[in-house]
């Protein structure tokens, strides 16, 4: 697999979480959670709404320091959120370069935008981008930083079905090219199985179940093995196919 090539040989786990706890008031949203992510590994995190998966992502992204436990993450991280969060007052190419040290290097921004297929939109204001384009710009902004860990917080949730399929394929391709570790938070079981090396199910503040996906890429939703894994994961999420409890 392409990612293997990019793994740093001497590198320990890209993400190492031990005994992580995060409480809101008296409620423990994350309760003594352990998690390791290998360099270059694509991990999807599933869970019902409010189970704490976004909280975990925010802690890994250093957006929430109110936790206890041990958390080690790479210095070079990037996050793509559910909303693209582009600065509306900066043209798309300047958004891509925002926060990078040194003078803005337009050619670099254009390369990153070309990579996600919207090189021709470099000069426009974010307000004229479609939802899919804005999300691509947000991905370009994350990847231009050459992160060792890419955190994706339901980045496709707000896209329409067709755009979402294209965006998922794009993320798979970008991940294989860049070889960074990815943590994808999602509530879409199929998306998780399509993209991830390993799918985690979060429940009651811990990783309740994990499933390594050995299916060859690109993956096919119609594969019987795919269907089997999906059924199993849905069981873990408490949603049995065909029969709702």
């Amino acid at each position: 697999m392409a990612t293997q090539l990019h793994r740093r040989l001497n590198a320990p786990a890209a993400v190492a979480v031990h005994g992580l706890t995060r409480s809101f008031g008296t409620r423990r949203v994350i309760d003594n959670l352990d998690l390791n992510i290998q360099p270059g590994e694509f991990v999807a995190l599933l869970g019902a709404s409010g189970c704490g998966k976004s909280t975990l992502l925010r802690i890994l992204g250093d957006l929430d320091p109110e936790f206890s436990g041990e958390v080690t993450v790479p210095t070079r991280r990037a996050i793509a959120f559910q909303a693209p969060r582009l600065m509306p007052w900066k043209r798309v190419w300047r958004n891509v370069l925002l926060g990078l040290p040194g003078r803005p290097d337009r050619a670099r921004a254009e390369r990153a935008l070309d990579e996600v297929g919207i090189g021709h939109r470099a000069d426009v204001w974010p307000k004229v981008l479609s939802g899919g384009e804005a999300q691509r710009a947000s991905l370009a902004r994350a990847l231009v930083r050459e992160p060792d860990l890419l955190l994706l917080d339901e980045p496709f949730a707000a896209l329409d079905a067709l755009t979402r399929l294209k965006a998922q394929a794009l993320v798979a391709e970008l991940w294989q090219r860049h070889g960074c570790a990815v943590l994808l938070v999602t509530h879409d079981v199929e998306e998780a199985i399509l993209l991830a090396d390993r799918v985690l199910v979060m429940k009651d503040g811990v990783i309740a179940h994990q499933e390594s996906i050995a299916l060859p890429r690109p993956r096919d939703v119609a594969d019987p093995e795919f269907t089997r894994i999906r059924g199993e994961l849905l069981d873990w999420l408490g949603v049995r196919q065909g029969a709702a409890h």
Binding site: G61, D62, L63, R77, A78, I79, F81, A83, R85, M87, W89, K90, L98, G99, L100, R141, R145
Partner: peptide, 27 residues
Amino acid sequence: QSLIEAGRTLGLSRWGLVRHVILPGAL
């Protein structure tokens, strides 16, 4: 607030946040 958060994850310093996010947002 979500733009400020995004700016922070992009590695903007405090002054960078003021210059690129807060002041243009207040314009």
